[in-house]
Write a protein that binds this DNA or RNA. Structure first.
Lengths: 226, 226
DNA sequence: CCGCCCCTACGTCATTTGTCGCACCCACCC
DNA sequence: GGGTGGGTGCGACAAATGACGTAGGGGCGG
């Protein structure tokens, strides 16, 4: 293994995404960019890990950068990132995600990602991030970085400020239940249920249970009803 | 292409997706396919609708096929599809979605979509579907079609029973707005807004606006707040 | 032209929802 | 022990919500 930063060297990329369209598109797009070349594809984390291991044992050159989606079947992007950086320290993983939540960003970076981009970012930024990663730098999407710092500084207006009981209440609210329903399910009085709902709204700075339901979904407290 | 209609004519495509990467990828990919050409992009439904209207007024040729994502901010794909096929009957909309739920498929087709594909489908199938749509045919992903026929027998309790205005109302409800808010935004009286909401709940057999919001998300009327 | 549907709007009513203050109990910790 | 925070409960009140009937005007197809 030799030093990295060589401007003349073509950056070898592996694309990991469960959408064939995205893979094919990234392949076609990077073809139009000098200095980048897609040398491998995988449809999920397991495939990616297996493919890299196979290449390693066969003595084939590994990619310099892995463009990794997060939401995939079988093995997700965070897990795959952790596995790859552990098994192949020379490979840099750049996350290319649809989501910009601080939660996922933190998880991905903790897993060893060398970058975090949003799919609605400027494609040029993807190229920049890939080059930066190949140089050993870390590139974060500006919007992501902004949101990340905001979460770090902004005091708790998130679900963590809720007590366990309140989260339980919010879960039921987010499933469309009325106060009477909630009270019955939790074997408490309807007044108490209302007290809890009111406290939840107050803590989250919302004005209606519907808004609370939407926030609960956004924060992942319950899966999107899709 | 010899069996196909007019080999000389290039099929003009507009790509609507909130992910710039996907747009650029599809552009680069279709570049490698003879007979297809991307002539426009939009990052959400509103942009797409606005762009088409602008072209129409300027007398510029409209695209033959719109490749439409479903999950987008501002205006989702279902709503945009309905608006486009109504305003531009000559334009065929092919939905390119991450999801294969019968709910969304039905909603999309009811909105006038000429095709429904999954993003993890074979890219060649996308090309086939685009060609088919340009010919006036309808192409459904096989996995999607199978799941769809199952639901066709079920009676209509879906969003299709709603009027356009009611869908508009439901969209705002699903964003957490109160009746007063909705009334202001639509420049109608709060009583009228309540009437609409009440009618929506009645038609959908629901008992609260929160349930309506959840259903709207499930049906793809608005993107999951995630 | 007539009927039908949609959007609009209002009145009225019952119910739900949300707020505020107060209170009790219990577990836990200082 | 005493304080603290969370869960529970109530009363009273204000506001929002939802149901029901009624009704005018506009558009559109029979």
């Amino acid at each position: 293994m030799r030093g990295d930063a060589d401007p003349d060297r073509v950056i070898r990329i592996m694309v990991v995404d469960d959408h064939a369209i995205v893979r094919r598109g990234l392949l076609a797009y990077t073809d139009t960019v000098a200095g980048l070349r897609v040398v491998g594809e995988a449809a999920d984390g397991q495939q990616a890990v297996a493919l890299l291991r196979q290449w390693e044992t066969l003595g084939e050159p590994l990619p310099d950068v892995v463009l990794m989606d997060l939401q995939m079947p079988r093995m997700g992007g965070v897990e795959a990132t952790a596995a790859i950086v552990r098994a192949h320290p020379g490979v840099r993983v750049v996350v290319l995600s649809s989501f910009g939540e601080a939660e996922r960003v933190h998880a991905a970076l903790a897993a060893g990602a060398a970058g975090y981009l949003l799919k609605d970012a400027d494609p040029d930024e993807v190229v920049m991030a890939v080059r930066a990663a190949a140089e050993g730098e870390v590139h974060l999407d500006s919007a992501v970085a902004r949101q990340l710092t905001r979460r770090m500084t902004a005091p708790n207006v998130g679900l963590t400020s809720l007590t366990a009981r309140e989260r339980e209440i919010l879960t039921l609210v987010a499933q469309g239940h009325a106060n009477r329903d909630i009270a019955d399910r939790l074997a408490i009085s309807e007044r108490t249920a209302r007290t809890h709902v009111s406290n939840v709204l107050s803590k989250l700075q919302l004005s209606s249970r519907t808004q609370a339901a939407l926030l609960a979904i956004r924060e992942g407290l319950i899966p999107p009803p899709a």
